[in-house]
C-alpha cells in the first residue's frame, strides 16, 4: 500500500498545527479572525533573507532574526491597529476588515521588494529523506513535526500552568473584568501575539527551507489552519492537533486519489458541510440574557 501520502499528511499537519496554534491563541484572546496571519507567515523567511543579504549572516542566525522580526511585527500590528480598535469598542467585523487590509499591504510590500519568484534560504541538494513507515521523510520534515509537537505542547502547558496562560484565558473570557482584577490587557494580548507569531514563523521558515519562499507562501496553510481551528471548536491543544491531522489527511487523500486540482475545493467543501451541520446543533442565540 502506498503510504507516502500518509507521511506527507503528517508533514503538512505539522505546518497547519503550527499556524493553527498561533492563529487559535490570538482568536482565543481577542475573538476575531485575524487575516494578517496569512502575511505574517512569510515575514520570517523574507526577514531571514534580508538579514542574509544585508548583514551577511548565516542561515541559522538569519532564521532566529527572522523569527524575532515576525514577533515584533505582530506586536506592532497589535499596538498600532487592533488595540486602538478595541479602545474604540470597534466591532469584530471592523477588526477583521483591518486585518484583511494588513494582509494585502504586507503581502504586496514583500512582493514589491523581493518579487513574486520563489527564493531559497539556503542552497541544498535534492532531499531523498529517510525511510519511515514505508515512505520517505526528510530531516526538515522530521524537524518540523518535532517543532510542531513541542510548540503545541508548550502553548498548552503555558495556558494550563502559567500565570500568563491564566491571564490570557481571563482576558479572552472577559477583558473588562480582567482589567478590574489588575491584569494588564496590553501586556497579555501583546504576549499572545508574540507567542503566536513565533509559532507561525516556524511554519513559514519550514516551508521556505523546504520549497523556497514566495509572497503567497502563507495563504493556503493559513486557510487550512483556520479550517482546523474552527473544526477543533474550542482552543484545546489536543483538539487542534486532531483537527490539523484530519485536515492534512483529507487534503493528502484527495491529492492522492483525485489529483492536486481538487484538494482545495474538496477540503473547503467538507469544511462547509461540517460547519453547517454543526450549526444545527449550536447553542441558541447567545445574545439573549437569561434570569
Amino acid at each position: 500500500m502506498d503510504t507516502q501520502w500518509i507521511i506527507n499528511a503528517i508533514a503538512d499537519a505539522s505546518i497547519y498545527l503550527l499556524v493553527a496554534v498561533g492563529f487559535g491563541l490570538v482568536y482565543r484572546t481577542v475573538h476575531f479572525f485575524d487575516f494578517s496571519f496569512a502575511a505574517l507567515l512569510c515575514v520570517a523567511p523574507y526577514a531571514a533573507l534580508g538579514f542574509q543579504s544585508i548583514a551577511g549572516v548565516k542561515v541559522v542566525p538569519a532564521i532566529i532574526c527572522g523569527t524575532l522580526a515576525t514577533a515584533i511585527t505582530a506586536v506592532l500590528l497589535e499596538i498600532c491597529f487592533f488595540s486602538r480598535l478595541r479602545f474604540r469598542n470597534a466591532s469584530k467585523s471592523t477588526s477583521l476588515l483591518v486585518s484583511l487590509g494588513l494582509f494585502l499591504v504586507i503581502r504586496n510590500l514583500i512582493a514589491s521588494i523581493w518579487g513574486d519568484q520563489a527564493l531559497l534560504l539556503q542552497q541544498t541538494d535534492a532531499k531523498i529523506g529517510y525511510a519511515v513507515l514505508g515512505g520517505r521523510m526528510t530531516a526538515l520534515q522530521m524537524w518540523t513535526v518535532f517543532s510542531a509537537i513541542t510548540i503545541a505542547a508548550g502553548v498548552g502547558m503555558l495556558l494550563a500552568r502559567s500565570r500568563l496562560g491564566r491571564c490570557i484565558k481571563a482576558v479572552g473570557d472577559d477583558c473588562g473584568l480582567a482589567k478590574v482584577f489588575g491584569i494588564s490587557e496590553p501586556w497579555v494580548i501583546g504576549s499572545a501575539y508574540a507567542i503566536s507569531a513565533i509559532s507561525v514563523s516556524v511554519a513559514g521558515l519550514s516551508l521556505a527551507l523546504d520549497v523556497g519562499t514566495t509572497p503567497n507562501l502563507g495563504f493556503r496553510p493559513f486557510l487550512f489552519a483556520v479550517v482546523a481551528v474552527i473544526l477543533a471548536g474550542s482552543f484545546s491543544v489536543w483538539r487542534i492537533v486532531i483537527a490539523s491531522v484530519l485536515v492534512a489527511t483529507v487534503q493528502n487523500f484527495l491529492l492522492w486519489r483525485l489529483g492536486a486540482q481538487w484538494q482545495e475545493g474538496g477540503i473547503f467543501g467538507i469544511f462547509l458541510i461540517i460547519l453547517v451541520a454543526r450549526s444545527f446543533n449550536k447553542k441558541q442565540l447567545s445574545n439573549l440574557k437569561n434570569s
Binding site: Q284, L288, K289, S291
Partner: peptide, 18 residues
C-alpha cells in the same frame, strides 16, 4: 428572585429558546 427562570420562560414562550 434572580435565576428563578422568569426571562427563560419568556424566551421559551416567544421561541427564542427551545
Amino acid at each position: 428572585p434572580n435565576g428563578a427562570g422568569k426571562t427563560t420562560l419568556i424566551n421559551v414562550l416567544t421561541g427564542f429558546l427551545k
